[in-house]
């Protein structure tokens, strides 16, 4: 095992263990997403046919909001006892740290999605009329799109005043194409109109992931060492 993967794994393990013991991020995310679901269902009260049309948007917007809650905590954890400064002076590659954080967030948001999806199905009486298996790549690629940029911008907003507000302000404009693809793909799959296909949006989402993962890895070291 080469050194960077070792550091990534070690950081990832540490983050998961911390999360397992405290459950800070997961609990706040879950409760937040639950609130969003309930607030949305009060404000729309849709029948099954309508909810199929809007569910893609509801699901992803609530996951995006909930992810921001978790993303805000990822780096704040490293601020205590100047852990981040220790990282900065250590010879460990910055990208190993970034990948560990991104993968950790990816796992947390995936757990959130796995727990919340049944709730959405129950509350909005959802049933996919199209090929439901396509929702899996949409979810994986979409979550990675949110998380990779979110982790990067969270590191960026760490150095700003009122950092909790800063993250969504930076993240949302950049995430628009990814969010559009996720929502469109999910809606197409749920509605199941045979004349349209979600493939275009899945490919677009994959492109987005490749472009921004490369961008994050190229710039993270600069941002971490920004003085």
């Amino acid at each position: 095992m080469s050194a960077p993967t070792g550091i990534t794994l070690a950081t990832l393990k540490k983050d998961i263990r911390l999360e397992w013991r405290s459950k800070d991020a997961l609990n706040s995310m879950l409760f937040f997403a639950l609130l969003v679901v309930i607030v949305f269902s009060f404000s729309f009260d849709p029948v099954a046919e309508e909810s199929r049309q809007i569910a893609g948007g509801l699901v992803w917007v609530s996951f995006l909001f909930a992810a921001v809650v978790a993303l805000n905590q990822t780096w704040a954890r490293e601020m205590r006892n100047q852990v981040l400064d220790a990282y900065r002076v250590s010879p460990a590659p910055a990208n190993a740290l970034f990948l560990a954080k991104a993968i950790g967030n990816f796992i947390f948001v995936c757990i959130l999605e796995a727990l919340m999806t049944p709730l959405f199905i129950v509350f909005y009486k959802l049933r996919a009329l199209g090929p439901a298996w396509q929702l899996v790549p949409v979810a994986i690629l979409g979550t990675w799109a949110i998380v990779v940029n979110g982790t990067f911008f969270a590191a960026m907003s760490l150095r700003t005043r009122s950092r909790e507000i800063m993250l969504p302000l930076l993240l949302f404009p950049i995430t628009i194409p990814a969010l559009l693809s996720m929502v469109e793909a999910t809606t197409i799959i749920l509605v199941g109109d045979p004349s349209t296909s979600a493939k275009f949006w899945i490919v677009l989402l994959a492109t987005y992931d490749v472009v921004f993962t490369t961008g994050c890895l190229a710039l993270f070291e600069t941002v971490l060492h920004a003085e």
Binding site: S157, R159, T160, R161, I174, F212, G215, A226
Partner: peptide
């Protein structure tokens, strides 16, 4: 971002964001 970040790091963070925007 430029307004809210502490002065020493503003240029680097802002430049990184501009590149993300261009992507």
């Amino acid at each position: 971002l430029r307004r809210f970040s502490s002065s020493g790091q503003t240029p680097v963070l802002a430049a990184a964001l501009a590149i993300f925007g261009a992507l």
